[in-house]
Design a protein around this nucleic acid. Structure first.
Length: 570
RNA sequence: GCUCCUAUAGUGUAGUCCGGUUAAGCAUGCAGCCCUCUCAAGGCUGCGACCCGGGUUCAAAUCCCGGUGGGAGCACCA
């Protein structure tokens, strides 16, 4: 046993003892030394007793002696350990070549974009950015019954607001001719057949893993029926099915639908087509021909991975790598149209931009910044575990961004009139931000103010308050209005500091305070939107709509209009 | 019912593939202190976790087996 090794072990033992109250353990030291010197792993029997001996010896010293030895022999131990550097951003991709990664975000234009869309768009776009690759926005519009131009536009606006840049924008419906070619190819090679069974029967057979009679038809029949699908068959009478495996454990593989007849007018293609590809068929082909190398989507699609691979194999087309992530939803904030739509119809929620909703438009109105959303989503990582993120977390990111650009203003809720008897000041100058130079504003004052009754004790007579920027007062009367006397400017830190608004030029606004829509028991929260009348300084009128404000001692708000502000967060 | 995915502090995650260098890292939250004419931001300190049970191994959050909890799919929606 060479001396250097003994010394190294002793150093480790001392360090570990030092970090753990003067005691260490041989198993831990063994693990540590094997971690550093992998070559010792086949000599465990030899070094174990030595480690035990050294550890015992170190444990036998009192901490003073340990420290002395460290100082003399291994002073480097005393230097605080450097923090382990955390990986920035998303985990590395498999099979990714710098400059050759292509990702895509394929939303269906059937609703307003929300935080879930943001997650998919951000993850895919970050990967393209990370590898210097290409990022595609593809409107996945293969169900004419659901797609609308209004949604298409809203999605683009939302993504633009998020600051997501695309190298290419397209629609799945641009490639209808290709879907037809590929469908014919599958029919001609007997990898697909036309099924004319009833919808319920198909579903039942699928559940029971039974093949239907249509799957036994020969290629010629299928080719004939394909032609009939183009005009003669009515919607629902015939579909193209992939020959998968009716007995597969993965139900998705049980002869899935590839194309079906829909006669609804499409929002961009009109009535040019009546046979439309299903999601699986369209995505498989699109990702392949678009050159997508890595396709990430939420995990409810996980079982489709096998189908998409099988489809592309049958067509001898290139396959992308597929990845999945958990859906993102906030506690008490529904994401699905199924839940939001009735709320709007019942008038419980005003519209898709209601600040209680997790739509991008609502988040924007509420004062959440795109950069906060990006950081937040990146902080969630690529996990497949269910995420029910607390809104707190997003707020924390947002607060840090918004703090440096929010002007500090005074605002009084639950106002109570205050008269200061002996105040001679006619105006005060107050700085717009405590650390950043955002200028100052002058507020004209007289002896009449609003202060918040929240800042008054039950029996406030005799209490002292400091009106921020003005000075100290002592309360002498508390009836319908509070009467106080001015007692000087001295900064006495034990006096509570409060904000105020001069009555003579107070500006009344409506403060909207959004809260979660559904409580723990998933019942609608009747108090989810509070609207209170509050008074602000007149300076509020000089701000632009959309500006962020921090009302001192209240929280961050976004100016929504001259007479209305929305509470963002504390 | 069948199939798949998933499980780390109050919450969200890193680490898990390839067992040891971390008696588990970060953020948020909470508590305290500093700074400050805000209950903000910033700085510092503290609190707090490997779902359960077996097994393999000198060594398991990590590998294996068996449970349990949560989610998803079984559409002519995507």
């Amino acid at each position: 046993m060479d001396e250097n090794l003994r010394k190294e072990i002793r150093k480790m033992a001392l360090q570990n003892a030092y970090e753990h109250g003067g005691q260490t353990r041989d198993k831990i030291i063994l693990g540590k030394i094997l971690g550093v010197k992998a070559e010792l792993r086949n000599q465990i029997k030899d070094i174990s007793p030595i480690i035990t001996e050294i550890v015992d010896s170190v444990n036998g010293l009192d901490s003073e002696l340990q420290k002395k030895e460290i100082e003399n022999e291994f002073p480097e131990i005393l230097i605080p350990k450097e923090k382990i550097e955390e990986r920035e951003g998303l985990p590395e991709l498999k099979n990714a070549i710098q400059g050759k990664v292509v990702t895509r975000f394929p939303p269906e234009p059937n609703g307003y974009p929300h935080i879930g869309h943001a997650k998919a768009a951000i993850i895919n776009s970050e990967y393209a950015k990370m590898y210097g690759g290409k990022f595609i926005l593809r409107m996945d519009d293969t169900n004419p019954e659901a797609e609308r131009m209004e949604y298409h536009a809203a999605i683009k606006v939302g993504l633009e607001w998020l600051g997501i840049k695309f190298d290419q924008v397209k629609s799945t419906s641009d490639d209808m001719k290709i879907f037809y070619e590929k469908a014919i190819e599958l029919i001609d090679s007997d990898r697909a057949y036309i099924c004319t069974c009833k919808r319920e029967d198909i579903s039942k057979n699928r559940r029971e893993r039974i093949a239907c009679k249509c799957s036994k038809k020969d290629i010629k029949d299928n080719q004939k029926n394909w032609e009939k699908m183009r005009e003669k068959f009515k919607p629902g009478e015939a579909i193209v099915r992939f020959r998968g495996n009716m007995e597969d454990d993965n139900a998705v593989m049980r002869d899935p639908v590839l194309l079906r007849i829909i006669e609804e007018k499409h929002y961009t293609q009109g009535d040019k087509y009546r046979i439309w590809p299903s999601y699986d068929f369209a995505v498989a082909i699109e990702d392949s021909i678009d050159g997508v190398t890595h396709a990430f989507r939420s995990k409810e699609f996980e079982l489709r991975r096998e189908l998409i691979d099988a489809l592309l194999d049958a067509l001898k087309m290139r396959k992308p790598d597929q990845g999945f992530f958990s859906r993102l939803e906030f506690k008490g904030m529904p994401i699905s149209k199924r839940i939001i739509k009735p709320l709007i119809e019942e008038g419980k929620v005003s519209w898709y931009d209601d600040p209680r909703l997790p739509t991008l438009e609502a988040l924007r109105r509420r004062g959440i910044r795109p950069e906060a959303i990006r950081k937040f989503i990146m902080s969630l990582g690529l996990t497949k575990a269910n995420t029910l993120a607390p809104f707190d977390s997003l707020e924390a990111f947002n607060r840090k961004i918004v703090d440096s650009e929010s002007i500090r203003l005074f605002m009084v809720a639950n106002p109570k009139k205050l008269v200061i008897k002996n105040l001679t000041k006619k105006s005060v100058e107050i700085s717009n931000h405590p650390v950043i130079d955002m200028g100052k504003r002058t507020i004209e004052i007289d002896e009449n103010f609003y202060i918040s009754s929240d800042d008054l004790k039950e029996n406030p007579i005799g209490t002292k308050l400091r009106l921020l920027g003005i000075g100290n007062i002592s309360i002498i009367e508390n009836n319908s209005e509070v009467i106080a006397e001015y007692i000087g400017d001295e900064d006495q830190s034990e006096i509570p500091k409060i904000q105020w608004v001069p009555i003579q030029n107070a500006h009344k606004i409506k403060m909207i305070i959004p809260d979660i829509l559904f409580n723990e028991n998933e019942e609608f929260n009747e108090d989810s939107l509070k609207e209170i009348d509050v008074y602000t300084e007149p300076y509020y009128l000089e701000l632009k709509d959309g500006d962020m404000i921090q009302f001192v001692r209240f929280g961050y708000c976004r100016k929504d209009a001259q007479t209305q502000a929305i509470f963002t967060h504390k």
